[in-house]
Protein backbone atom coordinates (compact mmCIF):
# COMPACT_ATOMS: atom_id res chain seq x y z
CA UNK A 1 0.00 0.00 0.00
CA UNK A 2 1.72 3.19 -1.15
CA UNK A 3 0.87 6.13 1.04
CA UNK A 4 1.11 9.41 -0.84
CA UNK A 5 2.34 12.39 1.13
CA UNK A 6 2.33 16.04 0.13
CA UNK A 7 5.75 16.84 1.67
CA UNK A 8 9.12 16.26 -0.04
CA UNK A 9 10.16 12.71 0.59
CA UNK A 10 12.63 11.70 3.25
CA UNK A 11 12.21 7.98 2.68
CA UNK A 12 10.89 6.07 -0.29
CA UNK A 13 10.44 2.31 -0.11
CA UNK A 14 9.45 0.34 -3.22
CA UNK A 15 8.71 -3.38 -3.49
CA UNK A 16 10.91 -4.17 -0.50
CA UNK A 17 11.29 -7.86 0.26
CA UNK A 18 13.49 -9.46 2.84
CA UNK A 19 14.30 -13.10 3.49
CA UNK A 20 16.02 -14.71 6.44
CA UNK A 21 17.49 -18.17 6.31
CA UNK A 22 16.09 -20.43 8.97
CA UNK A 23 16.73 -23.92 10.20
CA UNK A 24 19.62 -26.28 9.55
CA UNK A 25 19.12 -26.24 5.78
CA UNK A 26 18.88 -22.46 5.70
CA UNK A 27 15.41 -22.34 4.19
CA UNK A 28 14.41 -18.77 3.37
CA UNK A 29 11.61 -17.17 5.38
CA UNK A 30 10.13 -14.01 3.94
CA UNK A 31 9.90 -11.28 6.59
CA UNK A 32 8.90 -8.33 4.42
CA UNK A 33 6.53 -8.88 1.49
CA UNK A 34 6.98 -6.21 -1.18
CA UNK A 35 6.64 -3.21 1.13
CA UNK A 36 5.69 0.19 -0.34
CA UNK A 37 6.09 3.24 1.89
CA UNK A 38 6.70 6.94 1.55
CA UNK A 39 7.70 9.16 4.46
CA UNK A 40 7.68 12.93 4.06
CA UNK A 41 10.35 15.21 5.47
CA UNK A 42 9.56 16.20 9.03
CA UNK A 43 6.94 13.49 9.45
CA UNK A 44 6.70 11.49 12.67
CA UNK A 45 5.86 7.92 11.82
CA UNK A 46 4.88 5.33 14.39
CA UNK A 47 5.64 1.84 13.22
CA UNK A 48 3.54 -0.63 15.18
CA UNK A 49 2.94 -4.32 14.94
CA UNK A 50 3.25 -7.52 16.93
CA UNK A 51 6.58 -9.23 17.59
CA UNK A 52 8.06 -10.67 14.41
CA UNK A 53 6.07 -8.39 12.11
CA UNK A 54 9.22 -6.99 10.48
CA UNK A 55 9.50 -3.61 12.23
CA UNK A 56 13.12 -4.03 13.29
CA UNK A 57 14.03 -5.51 9.92
CA UNK A 58 12.55 -2.50 8.15
CA UNK A 59 14.40 -0.07 10.41
CA UNK A 60 17.70 -1.91 9.91
CA UNK A 61 17.22 -1.70 6.15
CA UNK A 62 16.36 1.99 6.35
CA UNK A 63 19.49 2.59 8.45
CA UNK A 64 21.64 0.83 5.85
CA UNK A 65 22.76 -1.75 8.39
CA UNK A 66 21.43 -4.64 6.31
CA UNK A 67 21.75 -4.96 2.57
CA UNK A 68 18.69 -4.37 0.38
CA UNK A 69 18.36 -7.49 -1.76
CA UNK A 70 14.96 -7.05 -3.44
CA UNK A 71 13.18 -3.78 -4.00
CA UNK A 72 14.62 -0.36 -3.33
CA UNK A 73 14.99 2.20 -0.56
CA UNK A 74 15.95 5.83 -1.02
CA UNK A 75 16.82 7.97 1.98
CA UNK A 76 16.84 11.63 0.97
CA UNK A 77 17.40 10.35 -2.55
CA UNK A 78 20.39 8.17 -1.64
CA UNK A 79 20.85 4.45 -1.12
CA UNK A 80 20.58 3.78 2.62
CA UNK A 81 24.09 2.33 2.84
CA UNK A 82 25.63 5.38 1.14
CA UNK A 83 27.74 7.72 3.22
CA UNK A 84 25.34 10.60 2.53
CA UNK A 85 22.36 8.63 3.86
CA UNK A 86 24.27 7.36 6.88
CA UNK A 87 25.42 10.85 7.78
CA UNK A 88 21.80 12.00 7.64
CA UNK A 89 20.47 9.09 9.70
CA UNK A 90 20.54 8.37 13.40
CA UNK A 91 19.67 4.81 14.31
CA UNK A 92 18.97 3.37 17.72
CA UNK A 93 18.53 -0.39 17.42
CA UNK A 94 16.63 -2.48 19.94
CA UNK A 95 19.74 -3.97 21.55
CA UNK A 96 22.71 -1.84 22.52
CA UNK A 97 25.37 -2.34 19.83
CA UNK A 98 27.94 -0.10 21.48
CA UNK A 99 31.33 -1.27 22.73
CA UNK A 100 30.64 -2.32 26.31
CA UNK A 101 34.29 -1.96 27.26
CA UNK A 102 34.29 1.78 26.60
CA UNK A 103 32.90 4.55 28.78
CA UNK A 104 29.83 6.43 27.55
CA UNK A 105 31.77 9.59 26.76
CA UNK A 106 34.41 7.60 24.82
CA UNK A 107 31.72 5.93 22.71
CA UNK A 108 30.16 9.30 21.94
CA UNK A 109 33.60 10.69 21.06
CA UNK A 110 34.20 7.77 18.69
CA UNK A 111 30.74 8.02 17.17
CA UNK A 112 31.02 11.79 16.79
CA UNK A 113 34.38 11.55 15.05
CA UNK A 114 32.95 8.98 12.64
CA UNK A 115 30.30 11.56 11.79
CA UNK A 116 32.95 14.23 11.27
CA UNK A 117 32.41 16.03 14.57
CA UNK A 118 35.28 16.97 16.80
CA UNK A 119 36.76 19.29 19.35
CA UNK A 120 34.68 21.52 21.57
CA UNK A 121 31.52 21.11 19.47
CA UNK A 122 31.55 17.33 19.91
CA UNK A 123 32.22 17.63 23.61
CA UNK A 124 29.45 20.17 24.04
CA UNK A 125 26.88 18.05 22.23
CA UNK A 126 27.94 14.86 24.00
CA UNK A 127 27.76 16.48 27.44
CA UNK A 128 24.44 18.12 26.66
CA UNK A 129 22.88 14.84 25.52
CA UNK A 130 24.23 12.92 28.49
CA UNK A 131 22.71 15.52 30.80
CA UNK A 132 19.39 15.37 28.92
CA UNK A 133 19.11 11.58 29.25
CA UNK A 134 20.24 11.66 32.89
CA UNK A 135 23.60 9.96 32.34
CA UNK A 136 25.96 12.84 33.06
CA UNK A 137 27.16 11.27 36.28
CA UNK A 138 27.80 7.92 34.58
CA UNK A 139 29.66 9.41 31.61
CA UNK A 140 32.94 7.83 32.66
CA UNK A 141 31.37 4.46 33.45
CA UNK A 142 31.88 1.64 30.98
CA UNK A 143 28.69 0.74 29.12
CA UNK A 144 29.08 -2.85 30.31
CA UNK A 145 28.13 -1.63 33.78
CA UNK A 146 24.96 0.14 32.59
CA UNK A 147 21.47 -1.19 33.28
CA UNK A 148 19.13 -1.94 30.39
CA UNK A 149 17.27 1.33 30.86
CA UNK A 150 20.53 3.31 30.97
CA UNK A 151 21.68 1.62 27.76
CA UNK A 152 18.38 2.54 26.12
CA UNK A 153 18.76 6.17 27.13
CA UNK A 154 22.37 6.14 25.97
CA UNK A 155 21.39 4.58 22.63
CA UNK A 156 18.87 7.33 21.97
CA UNK A 157 21.38 10.02 22.92
CA UNK A 158 23.97 8.43 20.61
CA UNK A 159 21.53 8.33 17.71
CA UNK A 160 20.90 12.08 18.09
CA UNK A 161 24.53 13.14 18.56
CA UNK A 162 25.12 14.31 14.98
CA UNK A 163 21.68 15.96 14.72
CA UNK A 164 20.44 13.63 11.99
CA UNK A 165 17.69 14.55 9.56
CA UNK A 166 16.19 11.08 9.86
CA UNK A 167 15.91 9.44 13.27
CA UNK A 168 15.09 5.73 13.45
CA UNK A 169 14.30 4.40 16.91
CA UNK A 170 13.55 0.75 17.48
CA UNK A 171 11.42 0.21 20.62
CA UNK A 172 12.95 3.30 22.26
CA UNK A 173 10.95 3.08 25.46
CA UNK A 174 11.45 -0.63 26.17
CA UNK A 175 12.98 -1.02 29.61
CA UNK A 176 12.68 2.66 30.48
CA UNK A 177 11.43 3.87 33.83
CA UNK A 178 9.11 6.86 34.06
CA UNK A 179 11.84 9.55 34.35
CA UNK A 180 13.69 7.95 31.44
CA UNK A 181 10.48 7.95 29.45
CA UNK A 182 9.97 11.64 30.22
CA UNK A 183 13.54 12.49 29.20
CA UNK A 184 13.16 10.68 25.88
CA UNK A 185 9.80 12.35 25.35
CA UNK A 186 11.43 15.75 25.68
CA UNK A 187 14.21 14.83 23.28
CA UNK A 188 11.75 13.61 20.67
CA UNK A 189 9.86 16.90 20.92
CA UNK A 190 13.09 18.75 20.18
CA UNK A 191 13.88 16.50 17.24
CA UNK A 192 10.46 17.27 15.85
CA UNK A 193 10.85 20.96 16.49
CA UNK A 194 14.00 21.15 14.35
CA UNK A 195 12.09 19.50 11.49
CA UNK A 196 13.74 16.08 11.49
CA UNK A 197 11.89 13.00 10.28
CA UNK A 198 11.19 10.40 12.93
CA UNK A 199 10.36 6.73 12.54
CA UNK A 200 9.71 5.04 15.86
CA UNK A 201 8.77 1.41 16.20
CA UNK A 202 6.85 -0.06 19.05
CA UNK A 203 4.68 -3.09 19.61
CA UNK A 204 2.47 -0.89 21.78
CA UNK A 205 0.23 1.58 19.96
CA UNK A 206 -0.53 3.58 23.09
CA UNK A 207 3.00 4.93 23.40
CA UNK A 208 2.93 6.47 19.99
CA UNK A 209 -0.51 7.56 18.95
CA UNK A 210 -0.47 10.90 20.73
CA UNK A 211 2.50 12.34 18.95
CA UNK A 212 2.63 10.58 15.57
CA UNK A 213 1.53 12.20 12.32
CA UNK A 214 0.90 8.78 10.97
CA UNK A 215 0.83 5.26 12.32
CA UNK A 216 1.88 2.43 10.05
CA UNK A 217 0.67 -0.97 11.18
CA UNK A 218 2.86 -3.83 10.07
CA UNK A 219 1.65 -7.42 10.40
CA UNK A 220 3.63 -10.38 9.08
CA UNK A 221 5.70 -8.15 6.84
CA UNK A 222 2.79 -6.32 5.25
CA UNK A 223 1.40 -2.85 5.89
CA UNK A 224 -2.20 -3.52 6.93
CA UNK A 225 -3.14 0.04 7.90
CA UNK A 226 -1.64 3.48 7.72
CA UNK A 227 -2.97 6.84 8.85
CA UNK A 228 -3.46 9.14 11.82
CA UNK A 229 -4.79 7.63 15.03
CA UNK A 230 -8.25 9.10 14.25
CA UNK A 231 -8.19 7.48 10.83
CA UNK A 232 -7.26 4.14 12.36
CA UNK A 233 -10.15 4.46 14.81
CA UNK A 234 -12.53 5.22 11.95
CA UNK A 235 -11.25 2.13 10.11
CA UNK A 236 -12.06 -0.08 13.07
CA UNK A 237 -15.37 1.65 13.90
CA UNK A 238 -17.15 1.02 17.18
CA UNK A 239 -15.09 -2.04 17.96
CA UNK A 240 -12.02 0.13 18.58
CA UNK A 241 -10.77 0.37 22.13
CA UNK A 242 -9.63 3.96 22.71
CA UNK A 243 -7.27 5.51 25.22
CA UNK A 244 -8.14 9.01 26.35
CA UNK A 245 -5.61 11.11 28.24
CA UNK A 246 -7.31 13.58 30.55
CA UNK A 247 -5.96 16.12 33.00
CA UNK A 248 -7.53 18.67 35.33
CA UNK A 249 -10.44 16.44 36.47
CA UNK A 250 -11.12 15.46 40.07
CA UNK A 251 -12.90 12.25 41.08
CA UNK A 252 -16.35 13.73 40.43
CA UNK A 253 -15.35 14.97 37.00
CA UNK A 254 -13.97 11.55 36.18
CA UNK A 255 -17.21 9.87 37.29
CA UNK A 256 -19.16 12.30 35.08
CA UNK A 257 -16.93 11.52 32.12
CA UNK A 258 -17.43 7.79 32.66
CA UNK A 259 -21.24 8.28 32.85
CA UNK A 260 -21.31 10.23 29.57
CA UNK A 261 -19.23 7.59 27.83
CA UNK A 262 -21.59 4.85 29.02
CA UNK A 263 -24.65 6.86 27.96
CA UNK A 264 -23.17 6.96 24.43
CA UNK A 265 -22.84 3.17 24.38
CA UNK A 266 -19.20 3.02 25.38
CA UNK A 267 -17.61 1.10 28.24
CA UNK A 268 -14.75 2.47 30.31
CA UNK A 269 -12.33 -0.44 30.62
CA UNK A 270 -9.60 1.11 32.75
CA UNK A 271 -8.67 4.34 34.51
CA UNK A 272 -5.02 4.55 35.39
CA UNK A 273 -2.46 7.26 36.12
CA UNK A 274 -0.37 8.30 33.14
CA UNK A 275 3.43 8.17 32.90
CA UNK A 276 3.46 11.88 33.76
CA UNK A 277 1.84 11.16 37.13
CA UNK A 278 4.51 8.59 37.90
CA UNK A 279 7.25 11.00 36.89
CA UNK A 280 5.80 13.63 39.19
CA UNK A 281 5.58 11.12 42.06
CA UNK A 282 9.23 10.09 41.53
CA UNK A 283 10.28 13.71 41.40
CA UNK A 284 8.53 14.54 44.64
CA UNK A 285 9.97 11.47 46.33
CA UNK A 286 13.43 12.54 45.21
CA UNK A 287 12.96 16.07 46.56
CA UNK A 288 11.52 14.79 49.83
CA UNK A 289 7.94 16.00 49.33
CA UNK A 290 4.97 13.81 50.13
CA UNK A 291 2.88 12.56 47.19
CA UNK A 292 -0.09 14.73 48.09
CA UNK A 293 1.92 17.88 48.53
CA UNK A 294 1.88 20.53 45.84
CA UNK A 295 5.26 21.62 44.50
Amino acid sequence: MAVPTPRPLAVEVRGLRRNYSTGFLGRPREVLHGLELEIGRGEFIGLVGPNGSGKSTLLRLLAGVDEVEQGSIRVFGHAPDSQAARRATGFCPEDSPFPSDLAARDVLALLGSLHGLGGAELERRANELLVRVGLAESARTKLGAYSRGMLRRFGIAASLLHQPELVLLDEPTAGLDAPGYAAIDGLLDEVRARGATLVVSSHLLGELHQRCDRIVVLVEGRIVASGSSEELVRTLGASARLELAVEGLDANGLAELRRVAEQRGGRVVAVQPSQAVLVELYRRAATGKTPGETP
Partner: peptide, 17 residues
Protein backbone atom coordinates in the same frame (compact mmCIF):
# COMPACT_ATOMS: atom_id res chain seq x y z
CA UNK B 1 34.44 -10.84 15.90
CA UNK B 2 32.80 -8.25 18.17
CA UNK B 3 32.65 -5.67 15.40
CA UNK B 4 30.72 -8.11 13.23
CA UNK B 5 28.41 -9.54 15.91
CA UNK B 6 27.41 -7.53 18.98
CA UNK B 7 28.67 -4.23 17.56
CA UNK B 8 27.63 -4.77 13.95
CA UNK B 9 24.71 -2.33 14.12
CA UNK B 10 27.12 0.29 15.43
CA UNK B 11 29.69 -0.39 12.70
CA UNK B 12 27.25 -0.80 9.83
CA UNK B 13 25.18 2.26 10.69
CA UNK B 14 28.21 4.53 10.92
CA UNK B 15 29.24 6.62 7.89
CA UNK B 16 32.62 4.85 7.98
CA UNK B 17 32.67 2.21 5.22
Amino acid sequence: ARLNTRERNFVAASPHS
